[in-house]
Design a protein around this nucleic acid. Structure first.
Ligand SMILES: Nc1ncnc2c1ncn2[C@@H]1O[C@H](COP(=O)(O)OP(=O)(O)OP(=O)(O)O)[C@@H](O)[C@H]1O
Length: 716
DNA sequence: CGTCGCTCCCTTTTT
DNA sequence: GGGAGCGACG
């Protein structure tokens, strides 16, 4: 038998050997779907002598792509691998770098990340005289994103706009689209949409890529969006060698446009597709599978799946209800320390802590730090999203793409060089009027009407500085150039003058940015442009080095596709997980449950679930019941606390309970307020004179903090 | 023009 | 608990 087939089961082998024609592998967690893609790529190259460059494998994260590339390389025993392995975004970017000129972009186009998008929308809102408190820029951006996901352009959107809000969105969408083109920039959605446009509108170009990508595989297919599916469908249109792999129970990105219908559409568009189901799980113990299965069974809209394991039944799932989030974090730290003592072979990186929201990491971090547990937080703030990094990169972006007005506006007065709001607005107006870029307007500052001479001088000094940088760029390597920006812009000096601890940390981050550029250079990509786009596309999870021995803390979303011997899931509470915002519909609730399924199925040996009765959210103390997902785990496999829970120490509780005049209100009470009307108590905090309640009022569904002493609330 | 301090709103999840 | 926006002041 083929060597490659040795590490696969019967079904997996069948999937790997089905090299030609459409193929869909639907299977539960840990059943070796990713392994199928990896081995299939190796098999195509080794046994069928397919050129690596003719294979496209799409993964969900860059990190997963790197891992897959390495595995394929190892299987083949080669040092290099020309195959295309990457995320949709990274792959589309490469196509666009070659061919975006067909769509009217210059080769130097740049990627706008979320914060760039937001500043652009805010800027355009100012131009339309729209106040941010009347129209939430994030909501507008979300609506534009939704339209892009559905492949609705600005013109079409305009014709379908009904409400006032949609009218405004339509206006902004058009301006936004124009601005991106003028700035020679694309946002994340554009990377996908423009690549698809390339395939749909330029047959020669499409055929070129159809010929190149002769074998296409997509991992985590359940979380692809419409555009992504159409991309691979177009590419596979003629040769039909498209293999998709996924698990409908692990679809957790519908809020970002992921479309589970793709799974059904695939079978419609490729009716000749072969379906393979994998049923053996190689990851978890039986009890873990039983728990995960019991939870997911509560979803009504799903196809039942079989999943079994050869691993033993394993230990029960442990649930620890803590009085508050500090108690929860202490429990996790203590449990990890105990487990490490009991089982010395367990490394830090054998543990993982998952949570629903990034904000939950803070308390856990504090406690881990105090307990001397080495941890790494994955997610929350991306390295490349830190202010100082974005500032410095903004200089580089303007140099690489002088049309990028968003980056230019960002740095025009950083460090402060006396160019104020009024001056920039005049330069802006001048640029719009003359149809030139903002940088060109600044270069011609003496022509800008209504500017004082000192403002003109400051602008031209800045323009000259940028011109000097542009000159330097041609003479320097990328790391040297980044260092040049940091030093000559005065950014470093500005930070050094600030003697604060944070400023010091920023200086260190800038040093790390230079190291990142060096590292990137060594990976064989010299151009500044390549470094910049790398920073736009990389996420925190991609940066994470899982060889280092730290305990990773991450959201449940980030945990997708990973596996750990011991898993903690914190914050198992109603309104946190499932999240309050997801309780509005059955569909969203079911997605929360799938998220729980994903979390549980990451574990190989042990699962610990924790909850907190009382938790601070946005500074407010809120009481929560344990998550319904805990109730959904069968009692026989759940190790719960004794029915009468021991008395935990909790200052808040002790005080409120001992107070003779404890709160007249409890969470859930209906009350009447003279001005706001009827509402429901969402939280109680403080006591006596300073007792506060948070009330969600029905009239506007807004939550307000009120002092009980003054609010004169009547119980209903 | 730059800085300080107040208020508001928020993040639920990220390629 | 914190970042962004906005207004007041030097
Ligand atoms: N045939 C096999 N024999 C032994 N181990 C296997 C086999 N197939 C997969 N595995 C192992 O099982 C684990 C899960 O595999 P893989 O990540 O490919 O599953 P998956 O279906 O993609 O999982 P998920 O959907 O949960 O991310 C991995 O550790 C993998 O090495």
């Amino acid at each position: 038998m083929n060597e490659l087939m040795k590490n696969l089961n019967e079904r997996q082998r069948e999937a790997v050997a089905t090299t030609d024609g459409p193929l869909v592998v639907i299977a539960g967690a840990g059943s070796g779907k990713t392994r199928v893609i990896t081995y299939r790529a190796a098999y195509l190259i080794h046994t069928h002598k397919v050129f690596p460059k003719n294979i496209l494998a799409v993964t969900f994260t860059n990190k997963a792509a790197e891992e897959m590339r390495n595995r394929i390389r190892k299987l083949l025993g080669t040092a290099q691998l020309q195959a295309w392995v990457g995320t949709f975004h990274a792959t589309c970017l490469q196509l666009l770098r070659r061919d975006a000129h067909l769509l009217g972009y210059k080769r130097s186009f740049i990627i706008y990340d979320e914060s760039d998008q937001l500043s652009l929308v805010k800027h355009l809102m100012k131009r339309l005289n729209l106040a941010q408190k009347d129209y939430n820029p994030n909501a507008i951006l979300a609506r534009i994103g939704l339209a892009k996901n559905q492949m609705i352009g600005p013109e079409e959107f305009e014709t379908t706009a009904v409400t006032m809000f949609e009218e405004k969105v339509a206006q902004l969408y058009r301006l936004y689209d124009e601005a991106l083109k003028e700035h020679n920039a694309m946002d994340f959605d554009d990377l996908l949409n423009n690549a698809l446009t390339l395939l749909l509108r330029f047959p020669d170009c499409a055929n070129k890529y159809r010929n190149l990508f002769r074998y296409i595989m997509v991992d985590e297919f359940q979380d692809t969006n419409r555009v992504q599916y159409e991309l691979v469908r177009e590419l596979a249109k003629h040769h039909r060698n498209l293999c998709v792999v996924g698990d409908d129970d692990q679809s957790i990105y519908s809020w970002r446009g992921a479309n589970i219908e793709n799974l059904f559409d695939f079978q419609k568009d490729f009716p000749e597709a072969k379906s393979i189901f994998l049923e053996e799980n190689y990851r978890s113990t039986q009890r873990i599978l039983d728990a995960a299965n019991a939870v997911i069974m509560n979803n009504e809209r799903r196809k039942p799946k079989r999943l079994w394991t050869r691993k033993g039944e394993g230990e029960k799932i442990v649930w620890f209800p803590a009085p508050d989030e500090h108690g929860e974090a202490y429990y996790i730290a203590t449990e990890i320390i105990n487990l490490k003592r009991e089982k010395p072979h367990l490394k830090n990186s054998d543990f993982a802590v998952f949570y629903r929201t990034n904000a939950q990491s803070r308390v856990i971090e504090d406690v881990f730090r105090q307990s001397g547990l080495p941890y790494v937080v994955i997610g929350s703030v991306r390295f490349y999203d830190r202010k100082e990094i974005k500032d410095v990169l903004a200089f580089a972006k303007v140099i690489a793409n002088p049309a990028d007005a968003v980056s230019l506006r960002r740095i025009i007065n950083i460090p402060p060089r006396g160019i104020g709001k009024a001056t920039v607005e005049k330069a802006d107006a001048f640029a719009v009027e003359k149809g030139i870029t903002l940088l060109q307007a600044i270069e011609r500052s003496s022509e800008i009407p209504g500017l004082r001479t000192d403002a003109v001088a400051k602008l031209s000094a800045f323009a000259q500085y940028m011109a000097r940088l542009m000159e330097k760029k041609t003479q320097m390597s990328t790391p040297d150039f980044i260092r040049e920006i940091i030093e000559s812009s005065g950014y470093l000096k500005m930070l050094e003058q600030d003697r604060s601890f944070e400023a010091q940390a920023r200086v260190e981050n800038l040093a790390e940015l230079i190291s990142a550029a060096v590292e990137f250079l060594h990976s064989g990509k010299p151009a500044l442009e390549e470094f910049i786009e790398n920073t736009s596309l990389r996420t925190d999870i991609d940066e994470w080095d899982d060889e280092t021995d730290f305990i990773p803390l991450m959201t449940l979303h980030s945990a997708k596709g990973l596996e750990f011997p011991v898993v903690f899931i914190a914050g198992m509470e109603e309104e946190l997980f499932p999240h309050l915002n997801s309780m509005t519909s059955q569909a969203r609730l079911e997605e929360e449950r799938r998220l729980c399924y994903v979390g549980l199925t990451r574990a190989q040996e042990r699962i610990f679930l924790t909850s907190a009765d009382l938790r601070h959210i946005h500074g407010m103390a809120l009481m929560h019941l344990p998550s319904r997902f805990i109730d959904e785990i069968p009692e026989e496999i759940l190790l719960s606390p004794p029915k009468e829970p021991p008395k935990y120490y909790s200052p808040e509780f002790a005080q409120v309970a001992d107070e003779p005049d404890a709160s007249p209100f409890i969470v859930g009470d209906l009350i009447e307020h003279a001005t706001f009307g009827t509402g429901r108590i969402a939280a109680v905090s403080g006591r006596g004179e300073s007792m506060k309640v948070a009330v969600r009022f029905f009239r506007d569904n807004k939550q307000r903090d009120l002092m009980v002493r003054y609010a004169n609330l009547k119980k209903k």
